[in-house]
């Protein structure tokens, strides 16, 4: 286990030991919420005393996809939408790793939507952190599957008219064992949920509603990052255990937050090992890490 000196006198920021400081400044806009989620993530790492040598971050493409590159961990910046299947292979090859998928809403639920539901169905032991800014940021503010109806985007300049995804409902229905939603206003709750997910075995999903002041807030005349915080504070309502079918988002309405799902069922690997023991008996060669020669 690597040593992190949290009391380091030279460290100006408690987050610094977890960052590749040589890569700063980051690419995120002023007021963007992704950095806030990274702060929460590092807080969760500290509080959970996670073994940082065995914790891997996998991301896809997009603004949130850049998180992997800034964290001083084994980190993989994969292709657009495919963080989950990459992470699936990684976790199955080395079950000792704690594998975190850190990705945006477009990456996870549009181009990667199929992988999202199948990983939840299989209950692959992944911790998925979904930073949901309701829009495509990196490419310039296009409609995402999460964009609320009537919000204006660069590809729906007259307002969106297609219904958006309710992500907690989607992953709940697909079989996730842990589903929570917070906003970037809820920094303590986010960090706590992350810690819970680290401990949880199976497919965990944390949605963090996050501002994109440059593209979403501005275009929809919703102010800047600070205004987003005010809105989150005012509109959020904690509804732990709420039926996920009732937590869909609208453009300006209530934001249901809290831990919606926390249940137990065997993960993919447990099911696989159990099945092979049952079917093959002594012929089964159970493996841990698949370390090649």
């Amino acid at each position: 286990m690597s040593e992190v000196d949290f009391e380091c006198a030279e460290c100006t920021n408690p987050v610094e030991p977890f960052l590749r400081s040589e890569r700063m400044p980051h690419i995120w806009c002023p007021g963007c919420g992704i950095g806030t989620t990274v702060n929460c993530f590092t807080r969760a790492l500290i509080d959970s005393k996670a073994n940082l040598e065995k914790l891997v971050v996998v991301s896809g493409i997009g603004c949130t996809g850049r998180v992997a590159g800034y964290l001083k961990l084994d980190s993989f910046h994969t292709t657009h939408g495919r963080a989950i299947p990459f992470a699936t292979g990684l976790k199955l090859a080395n079950p000792k790793l704690t594998v975190v998928v850190y990705a945006g809403d477009g990456d996870l639920s549009a181009i990667g939507g199929n992988h999202l539901i199948h990983a939840a169905r299989r209950n692959i032991d992944l911790k998925v952190i979904c930073v949901n800014n309701l829009i495509y940021g990196m490419t310039g503010g296009q409609t995402a599957p999460t964009t609320p109806e009537h919000a204006t985007t660069s590809t729906n300049p007259y307002g969106t008219f297609e219904p958006g995804f309710n992500l907690p409902h989607l992953v709940d229905a697909a079989g996730a064992v842990y589903v929570a939603r917070w906003t970037t206003f809820h920094v303590r709750q986010v960090a706590r949920s992350m810690q819970e997910a680290f401990k949880k075995k199976g497919f965990s999903f944390i949605e963090i509603i996050s501002p994109c002041p440059t593209l979403y807030q501005r275009r929809n005349k919703m102010g800047d990052g600070l205004d987003a915080m005010k809105y989150y504070k005012q509109a959020s309502k904690v509804k732990n255990g709420a039926p996920t079918g009732e937590v869909g988002l609208t453009k300006t309405g209530e934001i249901a937050v809290g831990k919606f799902v926390d249940r137990d069922r065997p993960d993919y690997r447990e099911l696989m090992v159990h099945r092979f023991h049952e079917s093959l008996g002594d012929e089964y060669v159970e493996t841990g890490e698949l370390v090649c020669s």
Binding site: F76, F86, T88, G89, L90, N94, V291
Partner: peptide, 13 residues
């Protein structure tokens, strides 16, 4: 891409 995750996890895939 799953095979590539497995390779970085240590497997031949």
């Amino acid at each position: 891409i799953a095979i590539q995750g497995a390779v970085w996890g240590g497997a031949k895939a």
